[in-house]
Design a protein around this nucleic acid. Structure first.
Length: 777
RNA sequence: GCGGAUGUGGCGGAAUUGGCAGACGCACUGGAUUUAGGUUCCAGCGGGGGAAACUUCGUGAGAGUUCAAGUCUCUCCAUCCGCACCA
């Protein structure tokens, strides 16, 4: 069992690529310059995996593996602008990852610290907070992560927390609201104040964070997180220390969101900085060390959690906010906290002020007296990027006993992975056991030193791969800035919702860092984001643990790549989740076969001697041009390819029924156009038909067909006739029939007469070309 | 609890700007072709009533606006997703 992901192209990818590929092909046919690289997944994980399966060393995963990936993608019929190909696992890419890392290290944006980290026993590595899903690894959904204290490398995403949040304003409209909502939530900005309480006796300060400084006179105790550094000095009693340890363990075991409130009195008191009152210092498991300062003031009267805590430990409840409508909270008789804003009372000189005003004035006062200040807290944490894996970019740092942490000189980049490595999947990084890699001289003093053995999270690679695509063979910089200026920000990024707070935060962060390094000018990577729905099987997301995986390779062998792609586009609009249903796949297979038979038959027909035009020709051309208009409209507005494909099916059905009565003249044009329309969705079939029709060159380099409104226009229009909003009849009339004439005809209809007989026609509503409604009373 | 969505036949879905509800496909039924099965082709297919013409009800529930509501407004219900003791 190797400690590597068994990543493989799955149906979610196929759907993702089908959407992007259809769009790119359409844009090409419309004459646009499109850089259409497939996602990082296409190059990264599966290539690594394939290499491992063949027993190759990942260090050599370069062109041969890209070639293999190419073959896989081609087999699935995806087009990629190969002239700009790049793979994130090539040594050149390692080099620029390391180059960026050193730039960040020099600016304090990359740093190393000891921290409790999420450890996945299955991967044998640590994970970032964003990569933990329901307490489990994002790759191993049933393996709970463990907490381990380790020294690890972090990137300072928190330095950009405010900007990451503020710049979302520019993404509104272009990004799905739910992704923005998830990111807002994840960044978790909250405005408040920090206030220092002094420990009575020792004089030590306890800093707390609150969003409701206006309630501070209602603080009846302080509560520290069990992990708070002050706990060890306040609690000296062995029994209590044991209890605190138990508290931490018990909290970790429980279901999040439903954790029993545990508390312990430290025996110490703190001095309230506003009124000098001594308040007890408690320890509570509901206070999180990772948020704010890890300590709070408990205001039981105005915070529900504090209320529950103080109730169960018999701590005083002191209301200090009165609702504007004048009703007082009832103090000790309260059954729940009152969390609204109102008028401050029982609060010394601030009594009588509205909450909002008191907040500002009290924070100003705290600052003037040097015991606090306004403060903004974010929930976002720094991104832990160390991984104890073999594959991945080595972190370019050397530890020297005298010089400390020394970055690898730029001339020595890239640091590449050693070949002589034993991959056990156990314990620490496999690189630690490779002396030729680990033991190096210090670049500064030349004395023996040790190389960092951790490698970077692969989300580092995915954070900027799309920039490298613009200039993949550059060997003196990550890319040329002018190449970026041409393509960035990305006009349209397409991805799964699963990356809403992983990849999409990291890549936004990376973009801002690169901008501050002066490499690019855009502050955001992508103007527009489209998140396609998931591919479900039997109502739930496909996953290895559930065993409901549909293998694209197997489907391709059975039905062909075009069928799979067509089905992923047809089964639902792209933003919606779709259920995988194999009989639906067969429907698409039938459709493609039907098109193929039709076009090959008609190709022979086109060669027949010319004949008199027939009425069927007109009908077929009309449907053809209506279909062009429909599909063009779908591409230009909403990407509902399910309706595009439905309209292609309608066209094919119509051509089937007209087939025998068509004259040879329009047949060639109809076949060519049908093939071009099919091109973005089923490129293999389209290319095949294109050649059968005697044409040359790639279909997606042909101009997109243009709908002729005259040919698309119906001769006669059908107007529904309603009486009091109920459908009663239809009128078949020429286009420019005058309104008065329509009214006269409608009122004279045999089917209408019984419904208006004996009643007064109040008015007749005519919506030109649409409908006619007779209102009677 | 907070946030984001969604609700239409047996199923996936269509109705893009308030204007014929159910396009297209799947499943099903019948017919043609076939020794047979499969394939292919043709037809039917929301519920009730009717032999049929036709009629009536119908877009989670209830109200409202309108000549007209799946679509707009309000109230409620259900489901899904994300976050969740965030001070």
């Amino acid at each position: 069992m190797l400690p590597y992901p068994s990543g493989k192209l799955h149906m979610g990818h196929v759907r993702n690529y089908s959407i992007g590929d259809a769009l790119a092909r359409y844009m090409w046919m419309r004459g646009h310059d499109v850089l259409h690289p497939m996602g990082w997944d296409a190059f990264g994980l599966p290539a690594e995996n394939a290499a491992l399966q063949r027993g190759q060393h990942p260090r050599d995963w370069t062109l041969s593996n890209i070639a293999q990936m190419k073959a896989q993608m081609y087999r699935l019929g995806f087009s990629i602008d190969w002239s700009r190909e790049v793979a994130t696992c090539e040594p050149q890419y390692y080099r620029w990852n390391q180059w960026f890392f050193i730039k960040m290290f020099e600016r304090g944006l990359a740093y190393r610290k000891e921290a409790l980290l999420n450890w996945c026993p299955e991967c044998g590595t640590v994970l970032a907070n964003e990569q933990v899903v329901n307490g489990c690894c994002w790759r191993h959904e049933t393996t709970p992560v463990e907490q381990r204290a380790m020294r690890q490398w972090f990137l300072k995403t928190t330095a950009y927390a405010g900007e990451l949040l503020d710049d979302m304003k520019e993404l509104e409209g272009g990004w799905p609201e739910r992704v923005l909502a998830m990111q807002r939530n994840w960044i978790g900005r909250s405005e408040g104040a920090e206030v220092d309480f002094t420990v009575d006796g020792s004089g030590e300060k306890v800093r707390i964070f609150t969003t409701r400084i206006d309630t501070i006179y209602g603080a009846t105790c302080l509560i520290l997180a069990p992990e708070h550094p002050l706990v060890s000095t306040l609690v000296t009693n062995e029994d209590d220390r044991l209890k605190i340890k138990e508290m931490i363990d018990a909290t970790a075991r429980q279901d999040p969101g439903n954790i029993e409130k545990l508390g312990l009195f430290t025996g110490a008191y703190a001095i309230h900085p506003f009124n000098g009152v001594r308040v007890p210092i408690w320890i509570g498991n509901f206070v999180l060390m990772g948020y704010g300062t890890g300590a709070i003031m408990a205001v039981p009267a105005h915070d529900q959690r504090d209320f529950e805590f103080c109730r169960s430990f018999d701590i005083a409840i002191a209301p200090v906010i009165r609702p504007v409508d004048g009703l007082l909270p009832v103090g000790e008789a309260m059954t729940e906290a009152w969390t609204g804003y109102g008028i401050v009372e029982n609060s010394g000189e601030w009594s009588g002020l509205p909450s909002e005003e008191a907040r500002i004035k009290m924070a100003t006062y705290a600052k003037a007296h040097d015991f606090g200040a306004e403060s903004i807290t974010y929930r976002l944490k720094d991104w832990g990027i160390s991984r104890q894996r073999y594959w991945g970019t080595p972190i370019p740092i050397i530890y020297c006993p005298t010089c400390g942490m020394v970055p690898v000189p730029e001339s020595d980049l890239p640091v590449i992975l050693p070949l002589d490595v034993q991959i056990t999947g156990k314990g620490r990084s496999p690189l630690e056991a490779v002396p030729s890699f680990i033991d190096v001289p210090c670049p500064r003093c030349g004395e023996p030193a040790r190389r960092e053995s951790d490698t970077m999270d692969t989300f580092v690679d995915s954070s900027w791969y799309f920039y490298r695509y613009c200039d993949p063979h550059n060997d003196h910089a990550p890319f040329d800035s002018t190449a970026i200026a041409k393509w960035f920000p990305i006009d349209q990024y397409i991805g799964g919702i699963t990356h809403a707070i992983l990849h999409l935060i990291y890549s936004r962060f990376w973009t801002k860092v690169m901008r501050d390094l002066g490499l690019i000018t855009n502050a955001e990577p992508a103007k527009n984001l489209f998140t396609q729905g998931m591919v479900l099987k039997d109502g739930s997301a496909m996953s290895k643990s559930k065993g409901n995986i549909v293998d694209p390779d197997e489907m391709t062998r059975k039905y062909g790549a075009d069928t799979c792609r067509l089905y992923t586009l047809f089964a639902a609009p792209p933003e919606r989740d779709m259920d995988w249903n194999e009989s639906g796949v067969e429907g698409q297979y039938r459709f493609l076969a039907r098109v193929y038979r039709l076009v090959t038959r008609l190709a022979d027909r086109a060669c027949e001697a010319p004949a008199q035009p027939r009425s069927s020709d007109r009908k077929a051309l009309r449907k053809l041009h209506q279909t062009i208009a429909k599909i063009t409209g779908d591409f230009d507005s909403r990407w509902h390819f399910n309706t595009s494909i439905a309209s292609l099916m309608e066209l094919v059905n119509e051509l089937y029924s007209l087939e025998t009565s068509l004259s040879p003249a329009p047949v060639a044009e109809i076949c060519r156009t049908l093939t071009l329309l099919l091109g973005p969705f089923a490129p293999y079939t389209a290319q095949d038909l294109w050649e059968i029709l005697g044409q040359t060159g790639p279909v997606f380099r042909q101009p997109w067909p243009i709908s002729d409104p005259e040919l698309a226009k119906e001769d006669m229009i059908e107007i529904p006739v309603q009486v009091n909003g109920k459908l009663r009849a239809h009128l078949y009339v020429p286009h420019e029939t005058p309104v008065a004439e329509l009214e006269r005809m409608a009122l004279a209809l045999e089917k209408v007469k019984p419904f208006i007989a004996g009643k007064t026609v109040v008015k007749v509503i005519v919506v030109p070309g649409k409908l006619l409604n007779i209102v009677v009373r």
